[in-house]
Design a binder for these strands. Structure first.
Lengths: 116, 116
DNA sequence: ATCATGTATTACGCAATGCATAATACCGGG
DNA sequence: CCCGGTATTATGCATTGCGTAATACATGAT
């Protein structure tokens, strides 16, 4: 029931999460998925993360390089571009505004200035 | 540029905001829009809120009654149903999990338990 | 050899939602 | 009579999360 709502809530947020993971340095899709699966209540699947990586690269926020692996097919490493870092900074700036707005709604909603 | 991302971020969240507004008692679309416009960085338009109200009612989370107005067309007042209150409670329970997950990502991401 | 398993990526397609745009209805004032 | 503020409805687009499935490579079991 509520899963449908959660699915909607994640829109945009997962993009943010991916950039946060890459903030520390380059990584590849499969590893990013594992990292996000480790976070409780944030379980993601490959079919969610890979499209995000592709889009972020297409928009110039990520660059990639292919590295052969000894335990499977070649890995595609992604890393933040300068534009990507700017984007992440913007997200880091906007997110608190949202949580603040939510908190304003939760903690009373005075129609007019409460007097005294 | 970043507006597109914000649009995605709002998915699901605005539904939550509407229920939060109605938590205090019944209200009608236009008034809800005004209430949300009052919150900084949460500006919404009528074309966003009205479909949400329709959906929430169709799903049984809201009930409505029409009241004639002396300053325009009749108002459609919405109020939470028991199911709506349960839903809101579920959302109130889930939201902190999301913010917690985000904070875990932001504040370090230890691959293994940090020793010491 | 064959099959399953873990690693790693790609493609297809559906269901939802936010939102721009526009139309409509009602009232009062210039 | 037209304009602005109140109040709702309809249409249609773009984007995203995600289920499902296919594919490639290596190792180990049957």
């Amino acid at each position: 029931m509520i899963e449908g709502w959660i699915t909607q809530l994640r829109k945009g947020l997962l993009e943010y999460c991916v950039l946060l993971v890459l903030r520390r340095g380059e990584s590849y899709g499969y590893e990013i998925v594992q990292a996000l699966k480790r976070i409780e209540d944030l379980a993601v699947s490959e079919s969610t993360v890979y499209p995000i990586l592709g889009r972020l690269r297409a928009e110039g926020f990520l660059k990639s390089r292919d590295v052969p692996s000894d335990a499977g097919p070649p890995r595609r490493y992604f890393a933040l571009t300068p534009r990507g870092k700017v984007r992440l900074a913007e997200m880091n700036a906007y997110w608190p505004m949202l949580t603040k707005a939510l908190n304003e709604l939760k903690s009373g909603k005075p129609e007019r200035e409460p007097q005294t």
